[in-house]
Amino acid sequence: MTSDAGGQPYDADLMAAVTELGTALRELVDASVLTTVPADELRAAAADARAVTARLAAAQRPTTQLPVLDDPLVFRRVYNPVSGVGSALAPPVRIRRVEGGVVGEALLGPAYEGPPGYVHGGISSLLMDQLLGSAAIAAGLWGMTVRLELDYRRPVPLSTPLTLRAQVTEAAGRKCVVTGTVATAAAPDRTLVEARGVFVMPRQELHADYFGAITDASGRHRPPGRPTDATALADRA
């Protein structure tokens, strides 16, 4: 068994297997959008994919039950669509704490294409929402997104190492304001996308309404006290 600092122990072998499957699925997605094989090969691949789907569907958790590897208290979310190691949707973004905020690193392949050769603008929005929320958590805050504004200064290139940064700029009561940027790793001071988000902690009565049906992995009714989409943040720069 392995444990994050302050978190619940988890099965390291299961985590490795989930990560391996997530990596394989991301490779499959990339291959599927680049392939030029003929129609009969596509149909055969579709049949193989359905067979794998049937194997994975043989045992499933309800959507209100947290995955066994998740621990929201230390922000470990293995199927998060931005940073989850087990998600076929996630690049994934690697997020770490730095002085004053957080930094994310990612490389977005052809599955994330909008304009030819560049990242879809909606993907930039998805990534920045995640990173801004992670910055709030790193500052000891949390909340749900109530406003997200982006300025697209330049297109974000595909298949290029990216650096994402975010930091809390205002905090009062249940509300905090977080700003961030996207740039290439090769030119981190040349901003491609700039973002500003407002996050608000739900009132207690709404917290119960939003998350009251959530259970832990064993099925016990134990909604997390601080639910979040952000995943584990490394404490080292």
Rank of each mutant, 00 (worst) to 15 (best):
R94A: 15
Y10M: 14
V33Q: 06
G100K: 06
T19E: 13
G180D: 07
I137A: 14
G117W: 07
L162V: 05
G225F: 05
A234N: 01
D13V: 15
L14V: 10
D71A: 07
E105D: 11
E20A: 15
L141W: 11
A49S: 14
R236E: 08
A183H: 02
V37M: 11
A24Q: 12
A230Y: 05
G197N: 02
A106R: 01
L25P: 03
S87C: 09
H221I: 11
Y112A: 02
P116E: 07
I95H: 07
D151M: 04
D189Y: 03
P110F: 13
M144W: 01
A16C: 08
G84W: 08
L56F: 14
P115A: 12
A57C: 01
A234E: 15
R220I: 01
C176W: 04
A106C: 02
R77Q: 15
D70S: 13
R43F: 13
V168D: 05
R77N: 14
R165K: 10
S124H: 07
T2F: 12
R96I: 15
L69A: 08
A90S: 11
D229R: 05
H207R: 13
S83R: 00
P116T: 12
V85H: 06
G173S: 10
V68S: 15
A136I: 05
T181M: 04
V178H: 03
A88P: 13
P188G: 13
G100A: 05
L28E: 09
A106Y: 02
T19Q: 11
R61N: 14
C176G: 06
M1Q: 12
L148A: 03
A12M: 09
G101H: 07
T19C: 08
E205A: 14
R55N: 11
S134Y: 04
P188D: 13
V93W: 03
G219S: 07
A171I: 03
V78T: 13
T63P: 01
S218H: 14
R55Y: 06
S125V: 04
G180F: 04
G133W: 02
A16V: 05
L127N: 07
